[in-house]
């Protein structure tokens, strides 16, 4: 530990959404292995500013692996080489002196590059907007212990709810599909008793919004490997099941009206 390493960085630079963009090479000398990956970029940026070069734009916020703001393609892997880890939690002790590191933004047509390594991920919010909620106006909730939730269901819902919305699944997917994100969000609510009333409507709306913006799933499983919260592919299967069921159920429900 506490070792100092030097790296060669190949970083994607793109001055605005309409710029073509290209890789630039930078030397990162004397980086402590205790530094996080983003701190390494901070140091590079500070040196760039001293040289009079505009710093590399990349997004990050909490740097605790929970807000989902950060996300870089590092050496061809979303969030870098360590599994189950967001970029901000990746530390330089995972790299060796003299390494060449290629850093690229997330790629998907619905994640347009804003600048350098920053991308826009609005469609993920649109999927939530389409139905990623339980309709319970403030004040109308019954006592929290009124409906016991079996621990297994609660735990499984939680596994889905752990999604931080970083978009790594879309970035890693060769098809740019958002199945893992959508299924995590959908199943978080669909697995809980509270979410049953709107279950089928939710499945239809969220999936169809997803399909407006993203590619289709071919079950590669790359998304799961890239996911910093290690969300399971099982949720995608559950979503596929719920969606077709929803098409049938919603028709029936509509008939009852």
């Amino acid at each position: 530990m506490d070792q100092v390493i030097s790296l060669t960085l190949k970083v994607w630079r793109q001055n605005g959404p309409d710029d073509a963009g290209a890789f630039q090479t930078y030397q990162a000398e004397g980086i402590s292995q205790d530094a996080s990956f983003l701190e390494m970029l901070d140091i590079v940026n500070e040196r760039l500013i001293e040289e009079g070069t505009e710093p590399i734009t990349f997004e990050s916020d909490c740097r605790e692996g929970i807000c989902g703001t950060c996300g870089l393609m590092i050496n061809g892997k979303a969030h870098g080489p360590e599994l189950g880890t967001a970029t901000c939690q990746l530390h330089m002790r995972k790299f060796n002196d003299g390494d060449h590191i290629t850093i690229e933004p997330w790629r998907a047509v619905s994640f347009p590059v804003i600048k350098d390594l920053a991308v826009e991920r609005t469609p993920l919010d649109l999927i939530i907007e389409a139905g990623g909620y339980i309709s319970v106006p403030t004040g109308s909730a019954p006592d929290a212990n009124l409906t016991p939730v079996p621990k297994e269901a609660a735990d499984m819902a939680f596994d889905a709810a752990a999604c931080i919305g970083c978009g790594a699944c879309v970035a890693a997917c060769p098809n740019s599909a958002a199945q893992l994100f959508t299924s995590a969000k959908l199943n978080h609510l669909n697995l809980l008793p509270q979410g049953q009333a709107e279950r089928w409507q939710r499945a239809e709306n969220m999936v169809e919004t997803m399909e407006m913006y993203f590619g289709t799933c071919t079950n590669h499983g790359e998304c799961h490997e890239a996911c910093p919260k290690e969300i399971s592919l099982d949720f995608i299967a559950f979503m596929n099941r719920d969606y077709v069921k929803a098409k049938i159920k919603n028709r029936k429900l509509a008939g009852q009206r």
Partner: peptide, 22 residues
């Protein structure tokens, strides 16, 4: 107390014991 009710109804997966209660 209302916050817990509200959050639970929204689907916040609070920790539960084996009886299914919070």
């Amino acid at each position: 107390v209302n916050i817990i009710d509200q959050a639970t109804a929204q689907g916040v997966p609070f920790a539960r014991d084996y009886g299914g209660l919070l």
